[in-house]
Amino acid sequence: MRKWRCRNCGFIYDETLGLPDEGIAPGTRFEDIPEDWYCPDCGTEKQDFELVDY
């Protein structure tokens, strides 16, 4: 499981935790999140996240 960081505000998407409040189940890989998803803190689009932890 990996972590992805929003380049704009630093929000971390942790694949282990998912985002249940947004309907993204724990264990969801970043690439399986819909392409129109955006950072829940700042609105930055999915392509502007970077991998931070293998």
Binding site: N8, C9, G10, F11, D41, C42
Partner: peptide, 9 residues
Amino acid sequence: YGVHVCLGQ
């Protein structure tokens, strides 16, 4: 940066 990052950016 973080949760208080400018809303209107």
